[in-house]
Amino acid sequence: MDALVNNAGIEPAHSLEGMELGTWQATLDVNLTGPALMIKHCVPMWRRQGGGRVVSIGSRVWLGGGWTPAYSASKAGLVGLTRTACRELGPLGVTVNVVAPSFLHTAFNAQKAEAAFLDSYVGRFAEASPLGRLVEPVDVANAVAFLVSDRARNITGEVLHVAAGTQLAPAVQ
């Protein structure tokens, strides 16, 4: 196992007041507990082979975002897990990082935003970007490819924002 990419996630939209406990737990189970268990079960292999790479897909929303309290908390927890794991696994030669994209330019996300409640959501993300554009899936893939490569051998415990600069703007609501 040279590299583990934790890329499963769910993002239920709801207010904090309207959130149900089951939604909270399911989101934490998929977005935080799953990556923790994947890392845990790869450690024996990395110990035997003398190293490896972990990249978890986080989100710009770990900085806080509207209508996604469970998702935001789970992605913030993923950053904490990553920083703890990098200290514990570094002596084994394992690097552990997070790629934190913003809203991705996909047909699925555009439909989800329009169906939920924000017909201009996509446009507001592009406007919030200093680059004036949305993040494409290939941008995230390129960041992951870099972090699992030998070129990133001394990068660990980091959050790489692939967000077209939107992490610098207030949360898009």
Score class of each variant (00 low, 15 high):
residue 109 N to A: 08
residue 81 L to W: 02
residue 9 G to M: 07
residue 93 G to N: 11
residue 57 I to K: 07
residue 131 L to R: 11
residue 3 A to D: 08
residue 56 S to L: 12
residue 69 P to F: 03
residue 63 L to G: 04
residue 26 A to H: 10
residue 131 L to Q: 15
residue 18 G to F: 06
residue 2 D to I: 11
residue 130 P to F: 08
residue 165 G to W: 07
residue 32 L to V: 08
residue 85 A to C: 15
residue 64 G to P: 09
residue 73 A to I: 00
residue 4 L to E: 07
residue 142 N to P: 03
residue 36 A to H: 13
residue 12 P to T: 01
residue 160 L to A: 02
residue 3 A to F: 07
residue 47 R to M: 00
residue 25 Q to L: 12
residue 91 P to T: 12
residue 116 A to W: 15
residue 2 D to Q: 12
residue 107 A to W: 05
residue 49 Q to I: 06
residue 108 F to N: 09
residue 73 A to E: 04
residue 19 M to H: 01
residue 56 S to M: 09
residue 165 G to F: 10
residue 80 G to N: 11
residue 132 G to Q: 04
residue 64 G to M: 08
residue 101 P to I: 02
residue 34 G to L: 08
residue 130 P to H: 08
residue 71 Y to W: 13
residue 173 Q to C: 13
residue 139 D to M: 06
residue 98 V to M: 10
residue 97 N to Q: 03
residue 19 M to L: 15
residue 125 F to Y: 14
residue 135 V to A: 02
residue 158 E to F: 04
residue 112 K to R: 11
residue 72 S to I: 09
residue 5 V to G: 12
residue 15 S to Y: 05
residue 67 W to D: 12
residue 119 D to C: 10
residue 35 P to T: 04
residue 13 A to L: 09
residue 90 G to A: 06
residue 142 N to F: 03
residue 142 N to Q: 14
residue 144 V to N: 11
residue 71 Y to G: 10
residue 77 G to H: 06
residue 173 Q to A: 14
residue 120 S to T: 15
residue 114 E to F: 12
residue 112 K to N: 13
residue 163 A to I: 05
residue 56 S to Y: 09
residue 53 R to P: 06
residue 21 L to R: 13
residue 20 E to M: 06
residue 112 K to M: 07
residue 42 C to W: 11
residue 37 L to C: 06
residue 44 P to R: 02
residue 5 V to P: 13
residue 110 A to L: 09
residue 131 L to T: 07
residue 12 P to D: 00
residue 45 M to S: 14
residue 102 S to F: 02
residue 138 V to H: 12
residue 38 M to G: 08
residue 168 L to M: 14
residue 149 S to R: 06
residue 167 Q to H: 15
residue 124 R to V: 01
residue 48 R to L: 08
residue 170 P to T: 03
residue 132 G to K: 00
residue 95 T to C: 14
residue 22 G to K: 09
residue 110 A to N: 10
residue 130 P to N: 05
residue 126 A to R: 03
residue 46 W to S: 05
residue 23 T to F: 05
residue 81 L to Q: 00
residue 95 T to N: 05
residue 20 E to V: 13
residue 87 R to I: 07
residue 35 P to Q: 11
residue 146 F to D: 06
residue 36 A to T: 11
residue 84 T to Y: 12
residue 11 E to T: 14
residue 165 G to C: 09
residue 112 K to F: 13
residue 127 E to I: 00
residue 17 E to P: 05
residue 110 A to E: 15
residue 32 L to N: 02
residue 133 R to W: 06
residue 109 N to P: 04
residue 159 V to S: 04
residue 115 A to Y: 00
residue 5 V to A: 09
residue 127 E to F: 00
residue 84 T to H: 10
residue 22 G to D: 14
residue 47 R to P: 02
residue 139 D to L: 08
residue 22 G to E: 09
residue 125 F to D: 01
residue 113 A to I: 00
residue 110 A to M: 04
residue 119 D to Q: 15
residue 123 G to D: 14
residue 100 A to G: 00
residue 71 Y to Q: 04
residue 97 N to E: 03
residue 98 V to S: 07
residue 1 M to R: 08
residue 33 T to E: 06
residue 163 A to V: 01
residue 90 G to L: 10
residue 99 V to H: 09
residue 29 D to W: 04
residue 63 L to I: 11
residue 67 W to G: 13
residue 84 T to G: 10
residue 41 H to S: 10
residue 135 V to Q: 02
residue 106 T to D: 11
residue 168 L to T: 14
residue 97 N to L: 01
residue 170 P to L: 05
residue 47 R to L: 09
residue 103 F to R: 00
residue 169 A to M: 13
residue 58 G to E: 12
residue 83 R to T: 07
